[in-house]
Computed example of a mutant assay.
Amino acid sequence: MDHSIQPVPSKEQILTFPRFKNLSLENIVVINSLQQCKSIENTLKTAPLLGFDTESKPTFSKGEVQTGPHLIQLATREKAYLFQVSTEILVFLKPVFENKDQIKVGFGLKNDAHLFRKKDIELNNIIELSKSFSSFGLNNPVGIKNAMALLFQINFPKSKSISTSNWARKTLTQQQIEYAAADAYAPVLIFEELLRLGLLSKTIENNALKLGIHPNKSNN
């Protein structure tokens, strides 16, 4: 199949697509203690593939120092884990991010790598999915919304008011929780679909197969 003939759907077209089906709230876990981390340690550290994103409290003043990330999201196909950042949680997550035998996938991760380096965490085996659409004739980075539209004909809503909300607040709103989970869960679906279609580089494909990640036989 020649994917290069498929243009990115217009904003108007995307609005006609079915809405993205996120994980249910019972499959989204907000974590703010080391005790909670320990309860999911085995699941998290043995998952071969994790969707990954972060959220930070926005800075509005010139010269204001970014202190994020304030929320770190990791997702499997079944669950999303939202970590409210503290020193002990960063220590817990450090081996996951530095693990070369786990694939972490997401969009717009360059800034995340910079923020994590400042926290003395090196990101290993991270795949920036925005650059995986050259088979569609798209050489510029593709955002998560357009990726979902291209691959699944799905409308993946992105709310500016939620994305720029206070991610450092102690109690996240339901809208924040759902938004944050979707941003980590959708990359898992996108990676699996690109793998199924044979559109990832051979190096990534071979690494995925070596780690036991096999393409789904059908769409989402």
Score class of each variant (00 low, 15 high):
D2Y: 11
L150T: 08
Q84W: 07
N207M: 07
P18W: 06
Y179T: 01
L209P: 03
T46I: 03
H70E: 09
L200R: 07
G68T: 00
K158F: 13
P187G: 05
R77K: 15
I5F: 15
P95Y: 13
L197C: 11
P215E: 11
W167A: 05
A181N: 04
P95D: 10
P58Q: 12
G137M: 13
A180Y: 04
R196Y: 03
Y81K: 05
A149C: 12
G198R: 10
M148L: 15
E88G: 04
T59F: 05
H114V: 11
A182D: 13
I177A: 09
L200Q: 02
K11Y: 11
D101V: 02
E122M: 07
S134M: 06
E128G: 02
K38S: 07
E78I: 10
Y185W: 04
P9A: 08
P7N: 14
S159P: 03
G106D: 03
K38A: 05
D112P: 01
I31K: 04
K57V: 00
I31V: 14
P9F: 13
G212R: 04
Y179G: 05
S86Y: 08
S135P: 05
S132P: 02
H114Y: 12
N206D: 09
D112R: 01
R117H: 09
K57P: 02
S135H: 13
E122I: 07
K21N: 14
L115H: 02
S159C: 01
N166Q: 04
W167P: 08
N140L: 10
E88V: 15
T87Q: 15
H70D: 15
K160V: 07
E178A: 13
Q73S: 04
I177K: 12
A180C: 06
Q84T: 04
K118I: 06
E41K: 15
T67S: 09
K79F: 14
S130W: 00
Q6P: 01
R117N: 08
T54Y: 13
I154H: 01
L150C: 13
T54A: 08
Q36R: 08
T16Y: 06
F136K: 08
E26R: 10
F52E: 00
L90E: 14
N216Q: 10
S159M: 07
K158V: 12
S4M: 14
I31N: 01
L90T: 09
L189A: 04
D101G: 02
L209H: 03
Q176L: 04
I190S: 02
I204H: 00
F116E: 03
V91F: 13
G63M: 02
F97T: 01
Q175S: 14
I162M: 09
A147C: 06
K217T: 09
I31G: 10
